[in-house]
């Protein structure tokens, strides 16, 4: 097991290297660079531009730029954002908190609700409830996240039940700890639903299908035949087996934690990483993009790894070598 993990981690290194190189090259190959906005401004002198170019290192060939970046990153220096004139690590660190809150809450929202409703729907197969949940699930899969977000925004704007943007209210800094928590939760509700609804629907469908498959298995029939109470049959025998395929999804969910919210964050003006990165991409703020791409890629790889490990932990039939 340990050996397997170590091997996977070792494979990760060249993979990350290639990914970062690819991203860098794509950024480099994209037309124009960060200084374009200054170049178009007639009040900026060419000397100033030249000095800026030198300062930002944009005058060097891309390979050298990349190797400098790589060298820096090995000592934990993520570079300097052109636009914000701040260290990238500081920028990302400032935003990552909001993103993690949002991602985690939508993660829990979709998982908890998805599993519960999935199990419920499988147990009440073909009942009214099942049909209703199925409709909800299909809608959830089909509705584009940003459209759902817009709809929620529309409702919020018309009813005033929820705030329409941001993460905290104004008086946030004056609130007590409990109120602060409530305040963030209040702001969090809509983005969470918008972000987590699709995942919730998918998970519910999978959970339902998986549990239905398991309920048809012989060992469940056998468990029933030997006179076990239904509760035990379902929760001890069926559910434990049905949950295995879900574990793989868990890995994917973890990997998507940081990167999945760009549009939602934009719509709800959530001060997270998504907006930062999106703007950085548009402005060709290379190092900011690089850092976030690397972080996301690490999350993805680690997520996959966690999924594999969890699967092995839960399902004794799976062996990692």
């Amino acid at each position: 097991m340990l050996k397997y993990i170590i091997r996977r981690l070792i494979i990760m290194v060249p993979e990350l290297f290639v990914i970062s190189f690819l991203v860098f090259m794509i950024m480099w190959a994209a037309p124009g660079d960060f200084l374009d906005q200054y170049r178009m401004d007639p009040s900026v002198s060419p000397q100033f531009l030249e000095s800026l170019e030198k300062e930002l290192g944009l005058d060097k060939p891309p390979i050298i730029q990349y190797s400098i970046w790589l060298k820096n990153i090995l000592v934990g220096n993520f570079g300097y954002s052109f636009y914000y004139r701040q260290p990238v690590s500081k920028l990302i660190w400032g935003r990552v908190f909001a993103t993690i809150i949002l991602s985690l809450s939508s993660f829990f929202f979709s998982w908890i609700l998805g599993i519960i409703t999935g199990v419920f729907s499988a147990l009440k197969k073909y009942s009214m409830w099942d049909k209703l949940l199925t409709i909800i699930a299909f809608s959830g899969i089909a509705i584009p996240g940003f459209f759902l977000a817009l709809l929620l925004l529309y409702i919020a704007a018309n009813t005033g039940w929820f705030p329409i943007s941001g993460m905290v209210s104004i008086g946030h800094s004056q609130m007590g700890a409990g109120e602060r928590f409530k305040d963030i939760l209040w702001h969090l509700t809509l983005p969470t639903i918008a972000l987590g609804f699709g995942g919730f629907a998918t998970l519910m469908r999978y959970m339902r299908g998986s549990l239905l498959d398991v309920l048809n298995e012989d060992y469940v029939t056998f468990a029933r035949a030997k006179g076990l109470p239904e509760r035990k049959v379902i929760y001890k025998h069926a559910l434990r087996n049905a949950i295995n395929p879900m574990i793989t999804f868990l890995g994917y969910s973890i990997s998507g934690l940081l990167g999945g919210a760009v549009i939602i964050e934009n719509i709800f003006a959530w001060p997270g990483m998504g907006r930062l990165v999106y703007q950085a991409l548009i402005q060709q703020d290379v190092y900011l993009v690089m850092a976030s791409a690397v972080i996301s890629a690490v999350m993805l790889v680690i997520g996959n790894l966690i999924a594999d490990i969890l699967l092995a932990a839960v399902d004794p039939r799976v062996r990692l070598e």
């Binding site: 994209a30 037309p31 976030s292 791409a293 993805l300």
Partner: peptide, 21 residues
């Protein structure tokens, strides 16, 4: 294929779009 898969989808989408005028 794995490398392409491990670049987060939406970033890749925007990145590739940024690549083009």
């Amino acid at each position: 294929a794995e490398i392409i898969m491990s670049i987060p989808g939406f970033y890749l989408l925007i990145l590739l779009r940024a690549l083009l005028p």
